[in-house]
Write a protein that binds this DNA or RNA. Structure first.
Length: 152
DNA sequence: GCCAACGTTGGC
DNA sequence: GCCAACGTTGGC
């Protein structure tokens, strides 16, 4: 049985599962990704495009990548922000990873040594290079779907 | 519970 | 504009 094929995620977003977990995301359907108050993370949110995929990571509790979400609405003013130019995007669950990928396994993989998740522990929204995304997908029990192969 | 990383604030 | 103090995040 081949692993399911999915589009390569371009991003990774973090959530503390006791605040908002993958199960919450699945239950919610479409969820506004709010509360980002870091300028680097904000700029990544602004660069997200409709249809982009993102890894969903449980920080603090679990410390593992648990699923993949899709951006369904591009950056708009964060309704939870008072002032400032903070933004939110809307995301929806695509699928869980057949095998969640723990931070420990990511750190043990030399090819992922320069991943932002490892190098910049506090960044909550980050880009993922295609070759890193492919490694993470395979570790999670999925296979990358080549661009242009959608629906085939 | 501790502490390193790092962003922000505010005095100068 | 510099930098010390402080607060927050998040891994351990």
């Amino acid at each position: 049985m081949n692993p399911p094929a999915v589009l390569l995620p371009r991003w990774l977003v973090k959530s503390e599962p006791d605040v908002f977990s993958w199960d919450d995301q699945v239950r919610a359907g479409i969820e506004p990704w709010t509360g980002v108050r870091n300028h680097a993370a904000k700029n990544h949110l602004k660069a997200m495009r409709r249809g982009d995929r993102a890894f969903f990571y449980h920080s603090n509790i679990g410390r593992e990548i648990v699923g993949i979400v899709e951006v369904v609405r591009e950056a708009y003013p964060d309704p939870t922000a008072e002032g400032g130019d903070w933004v939110a995007v809307d995301v929806k669950a695509v699928m869980p990873l057949p095998r969640p990928v723990p931070l420990a396994a990511i750190k043990a993989e030399p090819r992922l040594a320069d991943l932002a998740l490892v190098r910049q522990a506090r960044l909550s929204v980050m880009p993922i290079a295609p070759h890193h995304a492919e490694i993470l997908l395979r570790m999670g029990g999925l296979a990358p779907l080549a661009a242009g192969m959608e629906g085939t």
